[in-house]
Amino acid sequence: MADWRRSGNDEMSPGDGSPHDAVRSSGRPSGANFNQIGKTEEMLDHENQSRVEGLATKISRLKGIAVDLESESRESNRYLDDMTDDFGSTTGLLSGSIHRINNMINTGRSNRKIMCYIILGLVGLFLITYYLIIRVTS
């Protein structure tokens, strides 16, 4: 088979660097172009692999975030359930205390004196505590 080069006229012919040079008469790429195609495929494969690795890294980060969110939501739900129980017990305690105070108020005059002493004692305790806190902080 003859390798055609540029003839006297400006017409393109096989062997002169045209795209037709890549394929010989057998229909296969020539050796130089076959290597170039192989390098291009290798470069594309390498780029695809690096992008796949990047996606895998991002997916693993997202998975970690999802697992963290799940554990955080479970802990928050557990905390809220505990708070609900605590508020329920506090409500029961306060309602019992209010009931006892109402019974004491409704019973008679002697209990009213005790009630006044208790209130005055609590106000005095509050003022002493307030004074001590102000003195310590300044």
Rank of each mutant, 00 (worst) to 15 (best):
A2D: 10
S13I: 05
N33H: 14
N48Q: 07
D81Y: 01
I133E: 05
R74W: 02
M12T: 10
D85T: 13
M104P: 00
R6Y: 07
R24W: 10
G121F: 04
R135I: 08
I134K: 07
L44S: 07
R24P: 01
I98M: 14
S73I: 15
M12P: 04
I37E: 13
L62E: 13
E41N: 15
E42W: 00
L69Q: 10
G27Q: 07
E42V: 03
P19D: 10
E75D: 13
V52M: 14
N111L: 11
N48G: 00
S138T: 12
Y117H: 06
S110A: 13
D16F: 01
P29R: 09
L122E: 08
E11C: 03
L93Y: 04
R61C: 14
G15I: 01
V23T: 11
R6M: 07
M1R: 13
H20S: 06
R28K: 12
L80F: 12
I114Q: 05
S30R: 06
D3Y: 09
V23Y: 15
R24D: 11
G64Y: 01
M1H: 11
D16K: 02
G121E: 10
S73D: 09
M43A: 15
V23C: 11
G15D: 04
Y79E: 14
D82C: 03
R28M: 11
N33L: 03
S95V: 06
E72R: 10
S26G: 05
G27P: 10
I134D: 04
W4H: 03
S7W: 05
L93N: 09
D3A: 08
T129Q: 07
N33T: 11
L55D: 12
I59V: 14
Y117N: 08
G54L: 12
S7F: 04
S60M: 08
M83V: 14
L44E: 11
Q49E: 14
G121L: 03
M104Y: 02
D85F: 01
R5H: 14
E70C: 01
S138A: 03
Y131A: 09
T84F: 06
G124M: 06
L132G: 01
Y79A: 15
D86H: 08
G64H: 05
R78W: 01
C116P: 00
S18I: 10
G15W: 01
I118Y: 07
I128C: 05
Y131V: 02
I134S: 03
I128P: 00
K58A: 15
M83T: 14
D21F: 11
M12H: 02
D3I: 12
L125C: 04
R135H: 13
I133R: 00
N33A: 02
L93R: 14
N106H: 03
E47S: 09
D86L: 13
D21E: 09
I59Y: 01
M12K: 10
R6A: 03
D68I: 02
S71W: 15
Q36P: 00
G54Y: 08
G17T: 13
Q36L: 13
S25H: 13
D16A: 04
A2G: 05
Q49H: 11
G124R: 00
T129D: 02
T90D: 07
H20M: 10
I101T: 04
L69C: 11
I128L: 12
G31P: 04
T40G: 12
T91C: 12
E47F: 07
A32L: 06
D86C: 06
E70H: 14
S7C: 03
M43I: 14
N111T: 11
G27S: 08
D81I: 02
P29D: 05
E53S: 09
G64E: 09
R28C: 10
E41R: 12
L94S: 02
